[in-house]
Design a protein around this nucleic acid. Structure first.
Length: 863
RNA sequence: GCGGGCAUGGCGGAACUGGUAGACGCGCCAGACUCAAAAUCUGGUGUCCUUGGACGUGGGGGUUCGAUUCCCUCUGCCCGCACCA
């Protein structure tokens, strides 16, 4: 007789089930359906042309959730699309002379094929591509609606300019003073730009973080800090010209410490402040100083090393509480135009920076807050003589009507006074700034605006939407090809008909990703971006999964967009993502040859602790995120060809908790592959056992395994709910081990074994869907596992009748006792004291105290 | 500088609300099978000393009958923000 092949044929099996699922449309939603909905979404990929391990991990994690929820009885939506606008397409055009659109669509075709062998439970009928006019025409309309609603505007302002990408960057895209993609030092430029009014929702975006209880704390904290709320006051300082006359103008400053106003010794304004620009007109030295400030001050290194510098404008500001007193007005390099009003008052005694500035320019230091309970006079003398500011809580001194008040009360009193004098008011300031969405790029969604000399910025009429990109463009010169296109740019004004110009900027690519999750709800609708009914049914996304690098960028923009879309009547929803999960990176060891060049893992010979390349020694570096530059990438295609999708999935899921970094190792994937083969052999044996009911009375061994099966169902379900996939795998392996070790010849042995194998197949299905389907089929079931309900456990079988509990003496383990679960304290104590090792420790003396926690522990305190 | 997180065998990591530390896996060691290798299987594997113990969750201290878990403190690493008034 031919023995069944004991080696699992993943190639055949995986292809077979992928075909089956596709033929049965297993992953499209049920419509109509009485089941509760569940929307699983992973951040859609940029079509770079190659699937990498980070993708595999991301989509595997989402797939586990999608498959598990489906088995749990939810109507699951799990769509996929392409974040298809972006700079790499233009770079490809530059390097290879291929059109960005063509390059992108080719990549999408390649990657869609690469996705297939992963066996993901995706609904491809909902596929969307963001560079398709059928997609982006809706966001053009949406933008015009935002404009009407006052949520979009155009303004000349200082912007972050990336000199390598030749485009503007949003604040969120500037990391350490450098462009987030190019790494180039960002410059400041003054340009006319379109902005989305994200600050309109600052308070709401902040408050609502509270309710995002299924988001990682880390991300919530990052958004909280990014929005950066601070309470304070705007204070008006009447200005006095150089010749001592009141100019009638006022200088507005923002402060969080109005209680320290009596300690003011100067005012300082940003080099970009209108007052500074005006003052520089008649002062060449000041103009030079301002130019100097604008040049530096962006890169990290510059900020860290830059000393506080100022230039006295000669203007004076009159103190709001004491009109007899004036302070000098400086232009200072450390004052940011973009925060508050671009001007501050300096209180050296209670602000570190102001102290540094005051010492440098010999400005007075006045103590106006002293710690509670300290001698105020002595403290003030010390502070005013020293170089250290005091910024903690205390009591106001030397402050007229504020004297004796603690900081909070003094703040309130100062604000009340300012308001009664009409020289200021209490206010809330945010760090968050409006989102600049104009990009001087070709490969993005055109901004549907026409600039007319007579009519200004005119929205493109609805009937002319979408504004599509011209195909005939070249990339041989830097800059935006739309800008120099001969015809596309020149159009007539829709309002007056005169010659006008199209807006040649395109949207930031974060625009597309800010609403795609809603588009998936009605991906083929032509007249609207999505149906409100469908969106309100499916949104919010129940589980969103992606990298932590989008903690403030994409996730904040999407939260804003959802509010903006609601404000414009597209839907009625505040938060787009109910549950958020941020996965860790995929890492690998790095290798360098004798010449210091990076080496690919595949080319390095590893034997034990040493490594070599062509006989030369290789330096093994620490594990880092897989990247092309360090050559420590592993091609998913090769892994899938060698071990199959289930092995790759299982390894990625079992090696580390999903939110931590994963270290890719060959040994690890081989371990997963070995396990699948062991599981396969269990199944081959189980398939020979005829199906039938379990005997009523089981031999103790299978009875124990029977309980373990139920415990495992319970534990794995819990693990899957809580993203503890690594622990779920461990439990399943434990059960597999127990099944393999069990004596099947006793009463109930075979039946429990068969039941156990079937259960393992069900439990591992979300993690390794192909082999589990195959096993399920081998066991003679008629349904496919993908359409089978998640197994239930019998609560009565979760626990044993007897329990083994630890016995400690003085907190140290001295033995264990196995007793009936219901055993009372007295029985536990008697059993514990009978242990020889315990008696030895007690040395004949009676115990001083015995702590008994039934079912858990007995701890004997020796005399 | 400010804010947050983490630290457990050779390695990745378990340990739910304080209750048998090291589950599960990787690696390693020994054995079986083999002419041999691979694959597979069996057993072992925190450290130290002699059975039996002692020690052990980054260091130090504390609370507790009992601490990987709670508190204080120090050290190291990682992440975010960065002159935010």
């Amino acid at each position: 007789m031919a023995l069944p092949d004991d080696r699992y044929n993943f190639r055949e099996t995986e292809a077979k089930w992928q075909t089956t699922w596709a033929a049965k449309n297993s992953f499209t939603i049920e419509e109509p359906s009485s089941k509760p909905k569940y929307y699983v979404l992973e951040m859609f990929p940029y079509p770079s042309g190659r699937l990498h391990m980070g993708h595999v991990r991301n989509y595997t994690l989402g797939d586990v959730v999608a498959r598990y929820k489906k088995a749990k009885g939810f109507n699951v939506m799990h769509p996929m699309g392409w974040d298809a606008f972006g700079l790499p397409a233009e770079n490809a055009a530059l390097e290879r002379g291929v059109h960005p659109g063509k390059w992108t669509l080719q990549n999408i075709a390649v990657m869609r094929e690469q996705f297939q062998p992963l066996g993901l439970s995706l609904d491809w009928s909902r596929e969307i591509t963001s560079c398709d006019p059928a997609y982006y025409k809706h966001e053009q309309k949406m933008f015009l609606d935002f404009l009407k609603a006052g949520l979009a505007y155009r303004k000349e302002s200082w912007v972050n300019w990336d000199p390598v990408e030749h485009t503007v960057l949003a604040n969120e895209q500037v990391i350490d003073g450098k462009g987030w993609r190019s790494g180039a030092d960002v410059e400041q430029r003054k340009l006319n730009q379109w902005f989305l009014k994200i600050t309109h929702f600052a308070e709401d975006l902040l408050q609502a973080i509270e309710g995002l209880d299924r988001w990682p704390d880390k991300v919530r904290l990052m958004q909280h800090n990014w929005i950066g709320r601070s309470e304070g006051a705007r204070v008006l300082w009447p200005l006095v010209s150089k010749d001592g006359k009141d100019t009638g103008e006022t200088l507005e400053v923002f402060t969080t410490r109005p209680d320290t106003l009596f300690g003011a010794s100067f005012c300082a304004i940003s080099s970009q402040h209108p007052l500074a620009v005006k003052a520089a007109e008649g002062d060449a030295a000041l103009a030079d100083f301002i130019a100097d400030c604008n040049r530096s001050g962006t890169s990290t290194a510059a900020i860290e090393t830059a000393e506080k510098k100022g230039y006295d404008t000669g203007l004076k500001a009159r103190h709001p509480f004491d009109p007899t007193k004036t302070v000098p007005v400086y232009v200072a390099n450390f004052v940011l135009m973009a925060y508050g009003s671009g001007a501050i008052f300096g209180c050296p005694g209670h602000d570190e920076r102001d102290m540094e500035f005051a010492r440098k320019y010999f400005l007075p230091v006045r103590c106006v807050v002293a710690p509670v309970g300290e001698d105020a006079v002595a403290f003030a003398a010390k502070l005013e003589a020293g170089n250290v500011a005091f910024s903690d809580d205390g009591v106001a001194i030397n402050s007229d009507f504020l004297n004796g008040l603690k900081v909070d009360a003094a703040k309130r009193a100062a604000i009340d006074k300012l308001e009664s004098l009409k020289l200021g008011k209490g206010t809330v300031q945010y760090r968050l700034r409006d989102w600049g969405v104009s990009r001087q790029r070709y490969w993005g969604c055109p901004i549907p605006i026409i600039h007319c000399d007579s009519c200004g910025a005119v929205p493109v009429p609805d009937k002319d939407l979408p504004v599509t990109l011209p195909e005939d463009v070249t990339f041989d010169v830097p800059g935006n090809p739309l800008e120099r296109h001969p015809t596309w740019k020149n159009v007539n004004c829709p309002t007056c008909g005169k010659a006008a110009r199209r807006e040649t900027d395109t949207f930031d690519t974060f625009f597309e990703s800010s609403w795609y999750f809603a588009r998936f709800c009605s991906p083929n609708l032509t007249d609207r971006p999505f149906s409100e009914t469908a969106a309100m049914k499916w949104l919010p996304v129940d589980q969103y999964i992606g990298g932590v690098e989008h903690a403030v960028l994409h996730l904040l923009y999407s939260r804003f967009f959802t509010r903006a879309m609601s404000a414009c009547g597209y839907l009625n929803l505040q938060e787009p993502f109910d549950g958020m999960f941020t996965q860790g990176m995929v890492c690998h060891e790095t290798y360098r040859g004798a010449d210091g060049a990076w080496l690919e893992p595949g080319s390095v010979n590893k034997t034990g602790d040493s490594a070599s390349y062509n006989g030369q020694p290789v330096t093994v570096g620490r594990s880092e995120k897989m990247s092309k530059s360090k050559k420590n990438t592993v091609d998913p295609q090769r892994i899938l060809d060698t071990y199959g999708a289930d092995s790759a999935r299982l390894f990625m899921l079992s090696d580390s908790p999903p939110d931590r970094d994963l270290e890719w190792t060959d040994a690890g994937i081989e371990g997963a592959w070995r396990y699948l083969n062991r599981l396969w052999r269990l199944a081959v044996n189980a398939a020979e056992i005829p199906d039938g009911p379990l005997p009523l009375v089981l031999d103790p061994a299978p009875a124990g395994v029977q309980r373990q099966i139920h415990r495992t169902i319970s534990a794995v379900s819990d693990d899957l709910e809580k993203f503890r996939f690594n622990s779920a795998v461990a439990r399943i392996r434990e059960l597999s081990n127990a099944l393999a070790d069990m004596d099947r010849s006793v009463v109930g042995g075979n039946a429990v074994y068969r039941f156990g194998v079937a259960t393992v197949a069900q439990l591992i299905n979300p993690l390794a869907p192909h082999i589990s389907e195959e096993i399920w089929q081998m066991l003679g079931t008629t349904s496919i596992l993908t359409e089978t309900k998640w197994p239930a456990f019998d609560p009565a079988l979760l626990e044993d009748d007897t329990v083994t509990i630890a016995v400690q003496v003085n907190g140290k383990l001295r033995g264990t006792i196995t007793v009936a679960k219901a055993a009372d304290k007295a029985a536990l104590e008697t059993a514990a004291l009978a242990i020889p090792a315990v008696q030895k420790q007690l040395d004949g003396k009676p115990p001083r105290k015995v702590i008994i926690v039934p079912g858990k522990i007995v701890n004997i305190v020796a005399a």
